[in-house]
Design a protein around this nucleic acid. Structure first.
Length: 840
RNA sequence: GCUGGAGUGGCGGAACUGGCAGACGCGCCGGACUCAAAAUCCGGUGGGGCUUACCACCCCGUGAGGGUUCGACUCCCUCCUCCAGCACCA
């Protein structure tokens, strides 16, 4: 044993120890309460970055804390190993994606082990493993059987840089989520979709009902994303034709104020409406121009509202009034029916449109507190009110009118109540190689034929040329492409698209409960034991995509009879980003701090401690090298003081006040002196503080600050020249090691051993704070006069208000300020302060 | 524009339920140790004033302004700034 802290020697030693003793391996056959803590599946991009380290350090602290509190802890890790970067790397380095991916996984696995994260490595999974992705295919087939997977030709988002289709969720500000400067284009392609909309209502409802342990902001984002709105679908007959146009509105009460019907430029009815109309050709050109604008607007966001009248009229089904039909770039084909009624007096967009094109304004809703007139309106009145100028509905409130008018419309057959969602079905087809093959074949005779389950997995062929251009590389592999039809045995072609990798990560956490099951995607018994996930930890960037897809998958699995609950994740924690020099760490900004460098220079414990200490985990963390050194100094300081006493304390038995099964007879009043009492008090207070933090809000920065205070106290005692009895000193030192162990496990294990204990802290019970020891013996009472601090008072017990006032007035300064008889009242906060309020 | 979050020393941050603003760490200043330096240990460190005096005492101070309260970083109102998400959703 040296007296200098040497993480390079200590850390690998304990990592070997943990591995040799299978410390992190668990089974579901256990009498202990279970705890499933999960960090988000990483993409094996090459090496861990600080965001990973932060994520895993938080999760590891929680896992270790639960272990020490007697839980059977499932803490797994794996790899989200399909995806585009592997193909790009393949093109760049002329290396097979598999090779590149495997090398990255090997490196990142070694890094995780070097950080001492408590993963059960026997459960490691990798989504590019056929043993894993066969179940993606299996899920797809189940969904296909139930109509939850379907194929349709659709306008899709296409990224020129990725050469593939993007889900709506992958479009950020009109650009690709990966290529922020590449505008997304629209193309028509046949695509496979998963019917997430079938669960839209339930996904929405459960955000309120079942996700109490989720951050409010994530729930809000999901609710907005699902975007439910209840309204009415209406049919408008087109004059002079037998066509009708459908609109959707949430404000049926305003329909007597409609002055026009406005269509999206892409609306399929436009062509029919123009048919045989004089001047149709020039209108057609105008519409085409608007259509181009709409596409551009989706890319750049926001253009001026523009429109044109296309020479047709519709009849308002309620009033029978004839209204002009317009086409405008502000109406979206993707939402609702692609057509809206325009009510300028009561909708701001319609108001602006009407002002520009001099359409009339008709006020049909009056607010409770004033009278609106069309001439004086400066903006639309969009709140509810009472109906006017609305025929038989005059006098009704908006709410009453919507109900009654919807009923009437349904009765007369020109409308019905409709619930609309913003969320779209999930397009999962990708024209890429490195993903799960979609298990269907196309037969000229039989059409689209699912691959039979007993032929799974459809293996991704190893030999393939990846150019990054054109259609899926799989189409260039004849051995893969050409197959026989499972139904008629005739020649058939395989689907050459692969699945969105978000499919892989939608259910991976089930696989961890038994990754070796071969007959089913999940082991029901193990799933029953481990689920739900008690704590999920990851970045806010997955608030919508991954977390909503995962919830969808669980609901599908429930309906397949695989699980018996509705939501997979009980509590979710979203960590902040790691920032340096004011920006997120990234290669392009050149502000990356490599975890390996930090381990090399300071050790894993210092790095872990720093990422937890520098900021509360949910907030962004500003990287500071000086801060890392501070943490390193702290560990050194702790190591030194333990090393100094270790030899003499090895065979000493600690006083036992922190052990639940310890020595309760240790007498605080007589057995220990004042200094020892003070030290024990700080120790118990620190246990209480750290424990409370783990149980509530995870502000690990302050918990660690508490441990630092305890160590500072030890040093203060050290320099006081007074003797601390060995059993007390030992208890304080070993408690410090235990409290630190979730954050900095290697050094904690080393200190524990130096103090003469059997190693293996995960098996040591978490220390227990006892109120009698944590209790302060005296209190400093703040004396305020009119709310300002004017003095202090030290008391040893809870005094009554009168006694306290008397003691306060005994202070000469206070007596000076407080003339007799001027006291209006006194306010007392027990054990804290007294405020003497003077009459003015 | 809407929704959510934030704004506190030179810096990261603390103050949990309305009760001493600035814990802990960094940085800085001073001292000890040393031939010297590093490391380490000890002390100081929001701003201003008063004072022979860092014994004390007084004033100001948590983005700005107002309010509630004996008392406000904390609650309420108005506004400003920053971050994130959504954004012509009918």
């Amino acid at each position: 044993m040296t007296s200098e802290y040497d993480p390079k020697a200590i850390e690998p030693k304990w990592e070997r120890f943990w591995a040799e003793h299978k410390f992190f391996e668990v089974t579901h056959q256990s009498d202990k309460p279970k705890y499933y803590v999960l960090e988000m599946l990483p993409y094996p991009s090459g090496a861990l970055h600080m965001g990973h380290v932060r994520n895993y350090s938080i999760g590891d602290a929680v896992a270790r804390y639960r272990w020490m509190n007697g839980f059977n802890v499932l803490h797994p890790i794996g790899w989200d190993s399909f995806g585009l970067p592997a193909e790009n790397a393949a093109i760049l380095h002329k290396k097979h994606p598999q090779e590149w991916t495997s090398a990255n996984i090997a490196q990142m696995r070694a890094q995780c082990k070097r950080f001492g994260f408590s993963y059960d490595w026997t459960r490691e999974i990798s989504s590019c493993d056929p043993a894993y992705y066969r179940w993606n295919q299996w899920f797809f087939l189940q969904m296909l059987k139930r109509g939850l997977a379907y194929r349709k030709k659709s306008r899709v988002n296409w990224c020129r840089a990725c050469q593939t289709v993007l889900a709506n969720e992958q479009v950020v500000d009109g650009c690709c989520w990966r290529h922020e400067d590449t505008p997304v284009e629209q193309r028509e392609l046949p695509q496979w979709f998963l019917k997430i909309t079938a669960y839209a209502d339930e996904l929405l409802a459960d955000t309120a009902a079942l996700l109490r342990g989720w951050p409010e902001r994530v729930l809000t984002m999901q609710r907005n994303w699902i975007g439910k709105s209840e309204g009415t679908r209406l049919k408008w007959p087109v004059q002079g034709t037998d066509l009708t146009i459908e609109t959707f509105t949430t404000r049926l009460d305003t329909i007597y104020g409609a002055v026009a019907l406005v269509l999206a430029p892409e609306h399929p009815a436009v062509e029919q409406l123009l048919h045989g109309l004089p001047g149709g050709a020039s209108i057609r050109m105008g519409v085409e121009r608007l259509r181009q604008q709409t596409i551009r607007a989706q890319v750049t966001g926001g253009v001026e509202k523009e429109g044109l009248f296309i020479g047709r009229f519709v009849l308002n089904p309620f009033s029978g009034e004839s209204l002009p039909v317009w086409v405008s770039n502000f109406v979206l084909m993707e939402y609702g029916t692609g057509a809206v009624m325009s009510v300028p007096a009561h909708d701001q967009r319609d108001f602006e449109f009407a002002k520009k094109y001099r359409l009339p304004l008709k006020v049909v809703i009056q607010p409770p507190d004033r009278i609106l007139s069309a001439e004086l309106l400066r903006q639309a009145y969009t709140d509810p009110g009472r109906l006017v100028n609305s025929g038989p509905y005059n006098g009704l409130t908006s709410e009453e009118a919507i109900a009654k008018m919807t009923r009437d419309a349904a009765q007369k057959g020109f409308g019905e109540a409709t619930t609309l969602f913003r969320i779209k079905d999930w397009g999962i087809s990708r024209q890429r190689y490195w993903g799960t093959p979609i298990p269907v074949v196309y037969c000229d005779t039989c059409g689209v034929v699912p691959v039979p389950e007993n032929q799974l997995p459809v293996i991704l062929p190893a030999k393939v040329e990846i150019t990054g251009m054109g259609e899926s590389p799989l189409a260039q592999v004849p051995e893969f492409l050409h197959t026989t039809c499972p139904v008629c045995a005739g020649p058939a072609r395989r689907e050459t698209d692969t699945m969105d990798t978000f499919v892989d990560s939608s259910w991976y956490f089930y696989r961890y409960t038994d990754p070796h099951t071969e007959t089913s995607p999940i082991n029901p018994e193990a799933t029953r034991y481990w689920f739900p996930i008690d704590q999920y930890i990851g970045g806010i960037e997955h608030a919508i995509l991954h977390l909503i897809y995962s919830r969808f998958f669980t609901k599908v699995m429930r309906d397949l009879g695989l699980v018996s609950f509705n939501e997979p994740v009980k509590r979710l924690f979203t960590q902040g980003m790691v920032i340096k020099d004011g920006a997120k760490m990234s290669k392009s900004k050149g502000n990356i701090v490599e975890p390996d460098d930090m381990v090399e220079r300071y050790g894993a414990d210092t790095t872990r401690l720093y990422v937890l200490f520098a900021a509360p985990p949910e907030k962004d963390l500003d990287w500071s090298e000086a801060g890392v050194e501070g943490c390193h100094r702290f560990l050194n300081r702790l190591y030194r003081i333990v090393a100094k006493h270790a030899e003499s304390l090895r065979s000493v038995r600690s006083i036992g006040t922190t052990r639940a099964d310890g020595n309760p007879a240790a007498d605080i009043a007589t057995g220990v002196n004042a200094l020892e009492r003070q030290l024990l008090r700080k120790t118990h207070q620190t246990i209480r503080r750290v424990t409370h933090d783990f149980e509530t809000r995870w502000h690990m920065n302050t918990a660690i600050a508490g441990i630092m205070e305890l160590v500072n106290e030890l040093y203060a005692v050290e320099s006081s020249e007074e003797e601390i009895s060995p059993p007390v000193l030992k208890e304080v030192l070993e408690t410090t090691a235990l409290l630190l162990s979730p954050y900095a496990p290697h050094i904690a294990e080393e200190l524990w051993e130096m103090l003469g204990h059997e190693p293996g802290l995960l098996r040591v019970p978490w220390p227990r704070a006892q109120a009698e020891y944590a209790q302060e013996e005296e209190y400093e009472i703040v004396i305020q006069v009119n709310g300002r601090v004017r003095g202090r008072l030290t008391v040893t017990e809870d005094l009554s208000e009168d006694e306290l006032r008397e003691r306060a007035l005994a202070d000469t300064r206070i007596a000076e300020l407080v003339r007799p008889g001027r006291i209006a009242k006194t306010v007392v906060v027990p054990k804290k302060l007294i405020n003497i309020v003077l009459a003015s």
